[in-house]
Amino acid sequence: MKYLYEKDLRQMKYNILTSTKHDEAVRAIAERLGMSDAKLRMVLIRRFDMSLLENLESRWQMGQRHADDGDPVAKGLGYELFTRFIPLVDTETMQTIYSDTTAMTQEIPFDEAIARGKEQIREAVLS
């Protein structure tokens, strides 16, 4: 008799993401991050537990409504959005990226600095 059982949850997690609303949310997040849907789905399935996946859509909605008010750099990067609302990046990594980007905005144009910061976030997400 088995005493410890861990089942492969990937198929079930994928089933959660196939629901209409979840699919829309995943596509929106992928567009925001600038990566492909399939890669983001892979990351989500690997990192998040099933309850967080179910709640993805409403968290994304609340993130857009409440996250990062005021600071333009944080808003461009999605500082709170990707650490607290949708925890794809851990806080320390995000803090480093944020301070790097803030430093960069002094030297190069704002949009370019944000684009570079986003590149770093993508790397952190995929790592």
Binding site: S19, T20, K21, D49, S51, L52, E54, N55, E57, S58, R59
Partner: peptide, 29 residues
């Protein structure tokens, strides 16, 4: 409930967001 119907009253697409999704997630995490 987000519902899309066709002219015969058939449900083409449906998405249900229930309260427990959010509550259980908040509770667990």
């Amino acid at each position: 409930y987000t519902i899309k119907t066709d002219e015969y009253g058939r449900v083409v697409d449906i998405a249900i967001r229930t309260p427990s999704i959010m509550n259980i997630e908040a509770c667990a995490h």
